[in-house]
Amino acid sequence: MESEALITLGKAIGAGLAMIGAAGGGVGIGLAVGGAVQAMGRNPDFTPTIQTNMILGVAFAEAVAIYALVVSLIILFVL
């Protein structure tokens, strides 16, 4: 029982630490969207192009956060 509780504790801490990686994704998405909105404000005619590229960039940035999520899910449910 003691060791099980320890394992659960370790899993929880590990999963929580793994999710710190999501912060990077958040910062990246914020930068991408901020830049895109500025660009759209200055050059509204190119909004569709900018939007498409923004979504692509956001998706790639989010992928990093998702890797963190995957690691944390694996720690919680697989290990």
């Binding site: 989010e62 992928a63 890797y67 995957v70």
Partner: peptide
């Protein structure tokens, strides 16, 4: 291959 992972886990997450 990374797309596979990011597509599926983005939605799931």
């Amino acid at each position: 291959f990374a797309k596979l992972l990011s597509f599926s886990f983005r939605l799931l997450g």
